[in-house]
């Protein structure tokens, strides 16, 4: 797997007096085969960084390098993205099998495609015989699994996951998080995992960065950021997490 290095990334929206700097000299590194959790509130610029890392938003300045090389601009992209709302990220007119097939590299033959789609569906714990189902027939959690299978079809070097559980019920969230963790370790994925939920980030990420108003305030190993936060804002975020529900053993 490959390392994704973002250096001094600046992204601005709008022009003239209404210009808004969504990302302000952001530097981040997603280490090879590790998960970097990016934490922040809405409007902090997390999603802009995610979209820039995937090449969906062009940077005003700064560099994004994958294994030391700039991101390619055409063809199947090596940085793939999983979106927040699976109902919006899968074409409602296409069967889930077709959606996954779209991301398969072109070297697959027709018959190889079929078995590959089955393998991917199986990998995200969905019944391969449901390949013909259309998105409205599936639940939110199942659709998010399809979205994950589609991303894996592209054989990505890095996966960007942008708030992938916040549109799901808590009862489903756990299953998706388990899957993400399982696949990350199994396939050795490099993962940029974005969420406003600290408990969720803590569960999946080994490295954590905290973002606010377009800037990175603090970054480091998860253990350090969560237990010995340096920035007052990080402490504020940690204080706001609801108390533990389970009885302490």
């Amino acid at each position: 797997m490959t390392e994704l290095r973002i250096e001094k990334l600046t992204v601005r929206y709008g022009r003239g007096p209404s210009v808004h700097t969504a990302a302000d000299e952001v530097s981040l590194t997603v280490p090879a085969s590790q998960t970097l959790g990016l934490v922040g509130e809405s409007g902090s610029g997390k999603s802009t960084v995610a979209r820039a890392a995937a090449g969906l938003v062009s940077a005003d300045s700064g560099t994004i390098k994958l294994g030391g090389k700039p991101l390619p601009r055409r063809g199947l992209r090596p940085v793939q993205m999983i979106f927040q709302d699976p109902r919006s990220s899968l074409d409602p007119r296409m069967s889930i099998g077709e959606s996954i097939a779209e991301c398969l590299p072109s070297r697959f033959s027709r018959s190889a495609r079929r078995s590959e789609i089955s393998r991917l569906l199986d990998m995200v714990h969905l019944d391969p015989t449901r390949r013909g189902a259309r998105p409205p027939e599936l639940s939110g959690g199942q659709l998010q699994r399809v979205a994950i299978a589609r991303v894996l079809a592209a054989r990505p070097a890095v996966v960007v996951a942008d708030e992938i559980t916040s549109a799901l019920d808590v009862s489903v969230q756990g299953a998706v998080l388990n899957l993400v963790r399982e696949l990350q370790t199994e396939l050795g994925l490099s993962l940029l995992f974005i969420s406003h939920n600290l408990a969720v980030v803590r569960y999946v990420a080994s490295q954590v960065a905290v973002m606010r108003t377009g800037r990175i305030l603090e970054a480091g190993p998860a253990d350090q950021v969560f237990h010995r936060p340096q920035h007052s804002y990080t402490r504020q975020l940690l204080d706001a997490v609801p108390d533990t529900l389970r009885s302490t053993p």
Binding site: Q173, G174, V200
Partner: peptide, 17 residues
């Protein structure tokens, strides 16, 4: 209750679903 991860969730176990 078991399905919600919190700041004390055991990182070595899968989340309850």
């Amino acid at each position: 209750i078991a399905a919600v991860p919190d700041m004390n969730t055991d990182l070595d176990e899968p989340l309850a679903t």
